[in-house]
Structures are given as C-alpha cells and as structure tokens.
C-alpha cells in the first residue's frame, strides 16, 4: 500500500501544491519546494525496491545546483531511477550499489540491458564498476554502443581493472589521432585481448 501511495504521489505531485517537506535526507531540503515531494517519493520508492538512492539524491542536487527547471530535475531523476532498476535486474540481485550506478550510466549512454547481463556472466566474481564505466565512457567518446559493448565483453574474462583503463586511454588516443571510434575500439580490444591471453 505504501508503495502504491508513493507511486501515486510521484505521478500527481507535479500538479499538486507544495507539500510539507518529507522527513529523511536533509540534503533534499535544498531542492525547490515544488519538486521536493516528487524527488522524495522517487527516492523512497527506490529504497523500497532495494535500489541505491544516493545516485538519485545526487542527480537531484546536481539539477538544483545548476538551476534547472523543476520538471527537468524530476525527469532526470525519474529516468535515472528507471535505469537503476533496469541495471539491477540485468546485473542480478548480488549487484553492489556502485555496480548498479555504473550500469545505469552505461544504459544512459546507450548500452543494452543484455550487455550488462552478459558482462556479469563473464565476470561473475569481480566488480563490474570499471568495465561498466569504460563502456559508458567509450560510447560518450563516439564508439557505437554495440561495438563498445562487444569490446568490453571481449575483455571481460581476462582483463584487470587497470588494463580496462589502459584500453580506454588507448582508444581515446587513437581517436585523437583521427581513427574512427568504432575501429579504434575494435582494434584496441583485440590487441588487449591477445595481450591478456599471453599473460601467465
């Protein structure tokens, strides 16, 4: 029942008069009173669903700090909440908060939930924060999402976090030299994979 009420609040609050500030995270007091109840509801819903709430709070604070219009702040937080949920479903119930957050960033960049699931399958016991961060980073660089996902997946079984970061730097450098982002990622991925295979 509580969750239903919170959901209703999230839907109706943009039209409602400012409500009394919700108890909870004092940082949310910095939000515009007109959007605060909606954000509080979204955060509470996420908490009830077992999702990390800190990214939602930070996104709301970011929008407020940048003096964004209330509806844009709500839209950004709502989308992030959806992406966090999708990421958690894709990564499995054992996913950590940072992994879910990084997964949401990858989804926002254009990765598919199936990519996240495949990454978890290939890297079941290691943290996925760096691979997911690199995936989001590559797409932001201009590498097509499916090429970036293929590159990150190809490295997943054998590559340490530091090697992932080195791979990202190499792709960035190739792009700066004029290489097409997709080609840079594909070539660097194969090179890194071969390198990893040779390691004792």
């Amino acid at each position: 029942m509580t969750r239903v009420l919170l959901l209703a609040l999230a839907v109706l609050a943009p039209c409602a008069a400012p409500l009394r500030a919700q108890a909870g995270d004092p940082r949310l007091a910095r939000l515009d009173p007109a959007v605060r109840p909606v954000i509080v509801a979204l955060v509470d819903s996420a908490r009830a669903a077992g999702l990390p709430t800190e990214p939602l709070v930070q996104r709301a604070l970011e929008g407020t700090s940048k003096r964004a219009a209330g509806d844009r702040v709500v839209a950004a937080v709502r989308r992030l909440a959806r992406d966090l949920g999708t990421a958690r479903s894709a990564l499995g119930p054992a996913a950590t908060g940072p992994e879910i957050d990084a997964g949401a960033a990858a989804l926002y960049a254009g990765a598919r939930s199936g990519d996240l699931t495949a990454l978890r399958a290939r890297r079941p016991r290691q943290s996925l924060v760096v691979p997911l961060g690199v995936l989001a980073d590559l797409v932001a660089t201009g590498v097509p999402a499916d090429t970036a996902a293929a590159a990150v997946l190809a490295l997943a079984a054998t590559t340490a976090d530091d090697d992932y970061l080195a791979f990202r730097r190499n792709v960035e450098r190739d792009i700066a030299l004029g290489a097409p982002p997709a080609a840079a990622a594909a070539v660097r991925s194969t090179a890194a994979t071969a390198d990893a295979i040779r390691k004792p």
Binding site: V143, P144, A186, V187
Partner: peptide, 21 residues
C-alpha cells in the same frame, strides 16, 4: 590524411553507428 584511419578501418570489421566527426 587518412593513414591512421585507413589502417584501422582495414584492420578490423567495423560496426559503424552514431557519431559525427
């Protein structure tokens, strides 16, 4: 002009997609 790009393009099959350069 195209040295780097051409070599990389030939070196790996591409999956071209969304960007402007």
């Amino acid at each position: 002009l195209f040295g780097t790009a051409c070599v990389l393009t030939v070196a790996a099959p591409l999956n071209a997609q969304t960007r402007a350069a």
